Simulated scan of single mutants.
Amino acid sequence: MKFKTDIEIVTGFIGSGKTYFINSLVKNTLLKVEKILIIQCEEGNSKIKEDLVNFKNITILNYDPQKPLDKDTLKEIILMYQVHRILIEYNGTRNLADLLEILNERELKKISNVTSIFFIADCTTYKMFLNNMPTLILPNLYHCNLVVFNNSSKIPKDEFKSIEKHILSLNRDTFILSSTSKDSLEKDLNEEDFLDGGMLKLSRILTKTLLSKF
């Protein structure tokens, strides 16, 4: 393998809107020259859109949520598929820090690179999860590049401001996006322009494609 595979992690509890986000992420960042593997580590209420499933450069891998993604499994997947980008829809009941520790091992860093971590949450249940399962929620907040809150219109504005302030106190480099519902997520992402789908990404993909031919 002559190039490193980019890895993007989408985490959050079931029902938070992870698959909705992945549909929007892929639709808005996929380049025609790019090959993507989506690893789904849980079966939620939503599905990957049919037009993405049928796109020849996208492969969906349904991974048993009862099995951990260990180093050997990840290495085998990366080398087997040899795609430009892997999206991992990570099970929210597993600790993100464990996955990042594995991906940061030397053997995997030689063939892959974690480029983005997205934490998806529902405003109506966020505080409950944070109060009852802080050991699962906090690693997401410490490491994520973007926090997406769905159903932001269902809680008072001052409560959401308090949530934002707390998150930024833990991770000052993250971005926070509020969306009134899962259905409006794609529009909100487009307006804020958080996703990497531009010329710099195209340059990286073309360079990797060229390297794979030598």
Results as ranks from 00 to 15, higher is better:
Lys2Phe: 15
Phe3Arg: 04
Lys4Asp: 14
Thr5Val: 15
Thr5Asp: 03
Asp6Glu: 15
Asp6Lys: 11
Glu8Arg: 14
Glu8Trp: 13
Val10Asn: 05
Val10Ile: 14
Thr11Cys: 15
Gly12Asn: 13
Gly17Pro: 05
Lys18Gln: 02
Tyr20Leu: 03
Phe21Ile: 06
Ile22Met: 06
Asn23Asp: 08
Leu25Phe: 12
Leu25Ile: 04
Leu25Thr: 03
Lys27Tyr: 13
Thr29Met: 08
Thr29Cys: 09
Leu31Val: 09
Leu31Gly: 07
Val33Met: 11
Lys35Gln: 03
Ile38Phe: 04
Ile38Val: 15
Ile38Tyr: 00
Ile39Tyr: 03
Gln40Asn: 12
Gln40Thr: 11
Cys41Ala: 07
Asn45Tyr: 14
Asn45Gln: 13
Ser46Gly: 02
Ser46Ile: 11
Lys49Asn: 14
Glu50Trp: 05
Leu52Cys: 08
Lys56Phe: 10
Asn57Val: 02
Asn57Tyr: 08
Asn57Arg: 13
Ile58Cys: 05
Ile60Val: 13
Leu61Phe: 12
Gln66Met: 15
Lys67Arg: 11
Lys67Ile: 13
Pro68Gly: 01
Pro68Cys: 03
Leu69Arg: 07
Asp70Lys: 12
Lys71Trp: 03
Thr73Glu: 11
Thr73Pro: 05
Leu74Phe: 07
Ile77Gly: 09
Leu79Arg: 12
Met80Leu: 10
Gln82Tyr: 09
Gln82Trp: 04
Arg85Pro: 02
Ile86Ser: 01
Ile86Asp: 00
Ile86Phe: 05
Tyr90Pro: 06
Tyr90Arg: 00
Asn91Tyr: 11
Gly92Gln: 05
Gly92Tyr: 02
Gly92Ser: 06
Thr93Pro: 01
Thr93Glu: 02
Arg94Val: 08
Asp98Lys: 11
Leu100His: 00
Asn104His: 09
Asn104Ser: 11
Glu105Gln: 14
Glu105Asn: 11
Lys110Gly: 01
Lys110Leu: 14
Ser112Leu: 07
Ser116Gly: 03
Phe119Gln: 15
Cys123Trp: 04
Thr124Lys: 00
Thr124Cys: 07
Tyr126His: 10
Tyr126Met: 07
Lys127Ile: 14
Met128Asn: 15
Phe129Ala: 10
Thr135Trp: 08
Ile137Tyr: 04
Ile137Phe: 02
Leu138Gly: 09
Val147Gln: 12
Val148Cys: 13
Asn150Ile: 04
Asn150Thr: 15
Lys154Pro: 01
Ile155Met: 04
Pro156Ser: 01
Glu159Ala: 10
Glu159Gly: 02
Lys161Phe: 13
Lys161Gln: 15
Leu168Pro: 00
Leu170Val: 14
Leu170Ser: 08
Thr174Glu: 04
Thr174Ala: 01
Phe175Glu: 07
Phe175Ile: 01
Ile176Met: 10
Thr180Ser: 08
Lys182Arg: 08
Lys182Phe: 10
Lys182Pro: 04
Lys182Glu: 09
Asp183Lys: 10
Asp183Met: 08
Ser184Phe: 02
Ser184Pro: 00
Glu186Ile: 05
Glu186Asn: 09
Asp188Gly: 07
Leu189Gly: 02
Asn190Trp: 00
Asn190Val: 05
Glu191Pro: 03
Asp193Trp: 00
Phe194Pro: 10
Leu195Gly: 06
Met199Thr: 12
Met199Pro: 01
Leu200Asn: 10
Leu200His: 07
Leu200Ile: 05
Leu202Phe: 09
Ser203Asn: 12
Arg204His: 10
Arg204Gln: 11
Leu206Tyr: 03
Leu210Ile: 14
Leu210Cys: 05
Leu210Val: 12
Leu211Phe: 13
Ser212Asn: 10
